[in-house]
Computed example of a mutant assay.
Amino acid sequence: MPKMKSHTGMGKRVKVTGKGKLVTEQAGKRHLLEHKSSRVTRRMTGTVTVAKADTKRVNKLLGR
């Protein structure tokens, strides 16, 4: 049986914390920023934890 390969694209998008949480950048701050208020764009900075519904799928892609 061959080894499972981790998804390199997911590895670049998601970071695993010391306690095992999955952390990623906040979505929605790449483009179309002109019509978004500065309050919204400020709120989009930083990192957020991956949604609970997605953690199983992301962990599988990371090979965990």
Rank of each mutant, 00 (worst) to 15 (best):
T45P: 02
G63E: 09
R13Q: 14
E25L: 02
R42N: 05
P2V: 11
Q26E: 04
K29A: 03
R64Q: 06
G11S: 14
T41L: 08
V16P: 00
R57E: 13
R39I: 04
M1A: 13
G11A: 09
E25T: 05
R43C: 00
K5I: 12
K56L: 04
V23N: 09
L33M: 08
G20Q: 05
V40T: 11
K15N: 14
R30V: 03
T8L: 13
G46Q: 06
L62K: 02
V58S: 01
M4D: 06
A53Y: 03
S37G: 07
T8H: 10
A51G: 07
T41K: 15
K29R: 14
G18W: 12
D54Y: 06
A27E: 02
R30W: 10
G9D: 12
T47M: 14
K5E: 15
G46S: 06
T55I: 13
Q26G: 00
R42P: 01
A53F: 04
V58R: 00
T41M: 08
L62C: 01
V58W: 01
T8F: 08
V48R: 15
T8K: 15
A51I: 01
K12H: 14
V50N: 01
M4F: 13
L32F: 13
K52G: 08
H31P: 00
P2W: 07
T41E: 02
V14C: 05
K29Y: 07
G11P: 03
G28N: 07
K36P: 01
M44A: 04
T24A: 12
T8I: 05
K12N: 13
Q26K: 15
T45R: 14
N59F: 05
V48E: 12
T45M: 01
H35S: 09
D54A: 09
K15M: 12
K15C: 11
V50H: 02
M4N: 14
G9T: 07
V40G: 04
P2T: 11
V50F: 01
S38Q: 12
T55D: 03
M1N: 13
K5M: 11
G20K: 01
V40M: 09
V58C: 04
L62R: 03
G20M: 01
L33R: 08
K29W: 06
E34T: 02
K21D: 15
G63V: 10
T45N: 08
L22I: 08
E34L: 07
L22R: 00
M10Q: 05
S38F: 08
S38K: 15
P2K: 13
R13I: 04
K52I: 07
L22T: 05
N59A: 08
T24E: 15
T41W: 05
K29L: 02
M1I: 12
K56R: 11
V48S: 10
T8Q: 12
K21W: 15
T49H: 08
G11Y: 13
K15S: 14
V23K: 08
K15R: 14
R30P: 00
T49R: 07
M10K: 03
K19A: 07
G18N: 06
R39L: 02
R30Q: 09
R43D: 02
H35I: 04
G46R: 00
N59P: 00
M44L: 13
K19N: 11
E25V: 02
K56D: 06
K12E: 13
S38E: 05
G9S: 12
S38N: 12
T41Q: 14
T49Q: 07
R64W: 04
G18Q: 11
M1V: 14
A27N: 04
G18L: 06
N59K: 09
R64N: 04
L22N: 01
H7D: 15
D54M: 07
A51F: 02
